[in-house]
């Protein structure tokens, strides 16, 4: 008896199982296997089939047909293209504006605390609240912005039904909410820069721009890279705002990858087709992760 116990203790795997330590890991392991790993495998598998949700017993293998179809699907292409547009409209502006505002209010003072609270306030609203709030504010008939424009003598704007205006408008709404948190991260980084660096630069006669370029930027490069990555992945995951505000319209001009996948999977029940979109989306996420790794490695030198 004693001998067996000794043997179990010596074997790492057996000890892990029989000492009960495995119970610490098991619940999470089960949940992640079922709800993360298994769905990823399903997505790859389904993407080569014509799985239709209402006919689960009538699935046949179709090879790369779903992927070919995406290449010819006007609305799918639009959705991918729109996601790229969202990234182009949102990411640079969000990083630059949050850095700009962070620099203006980084110094600790009472007035700056007030401004910080004001700038941070959109963050406590949920995405659904932000979407519905702005949907009403920018309403073409009764929204305050259009009434305000009209009182100044400008024409009313169809913010959400004009195909050229809808995507920039939604980008603005996302930007409006997104700046707050990124600003906070950059502000904390700015406050960590020792003030002696700036004093030394002043003695050497450096102007404000030179100080920003040679002291501020290099000191917070890590956090800027972090913000850049977070905002980029976040922007690719856009779904609630276009779903709630425009339902992807007009004419698919605001749809995103995830929204299109959601529509194909739920409204049209084309699980095979939606899964092919999932796989492409997963590949995009992997590519972003690779870029992130490279940037972080460079940062660490």
């Amino acid at each position: 008896m004693h001998n067996i116990k000794q043997k179990i203790k010596q074997n790492k795997t057996l000890d892990f199982i029989f000492s009960g330590k495995i119970l610490f890991l098991l619940p999470a392991f089960a949940l992640i296997s079922i709800f993360v790993i298994y769905p990823l495998i399903l997505a790859v598998g389904y993407s080569f089939t014509d799985y239709y949700l209402l006919k689960p017993n009538d699935i046949s293998f179709v090879g790369f047909d779903n992927y070919m179809e995406i290449a010819y699907d006007k609305y799918a292409k639009k959705a991918f293209f729109n996601s790229a547009k969202y990234v182009i409209y949102i990411v640079p502006l969000q990083v630059i504006l949050s850095l700009f505002l962070a620099t203006l209010i980084a110094k600790k003072s009472k007035t700056n605390t007030l401004f910080r609270t004001a700038f941070f306030s959109p963050y406590i609203l949920s995405i659904i609240v932000v979407s519905l709030l702005w949907k009403n504010i920018l309403d073409p008939n009764s929204g305050i912005v259009n009434e305000f424009l009209a009182s100044l003598g400008f024409a009313k704007q169809e913010f959400f039904s004009d195909p050229n205006l809808a995507l920039p408008t939604i980008s603005f709404i996302i930007l409006w909410q997104g700046i707050s948190f990124q600003m906070l991260i950059l502000m904390a980084a700015l406050q960590d820069i020792p003030s002696s660096l700036y004093e030394a630069a002043s003695m050497e006669g450096a102007n404000a721009w030179q100080k920003f370029k040679h002291i501020t930027l290099p000191s917070i490069k890590g956090q800027v890279v972090f913000v850049l990555i977070v905002v980029t992945t976040g922007t690719f995951k856009i779904i609630i705002e276009p779903l709630v505000i425009t339902n992807g319209g007009p004419q698919g001009s605001t749809s995103s990858i995830l929204l299109y996948m959601f529509e194909q999977g739920t409204r049209y029940r084309q699980i095979g087709y939606a899964s092919a979109i999932t796989v492409i989306f997963a590949i995009i996420l992997i590519m972003i992760a690779f870029v992130q790794r490279k940037l972080v490695k460079e940062e660490e030198g």
């Binding site: 709800f35 993360v36 298994y38 399903l42 997505a43 999977g265 999932t278 997963a282 996420l285 992760a289």
Partner: peptide
């Protein structure tokens, strides 16, 4: 590696399950 794939990327397949 799994951190790369957020919930939103596979919600259609999770719905099937």
């Amino acid at each position: 590696i799994l951190i790369i794939f957020p919930f939103q990327s596979v919600f259609i397949q999770i719905f099937i399950i």
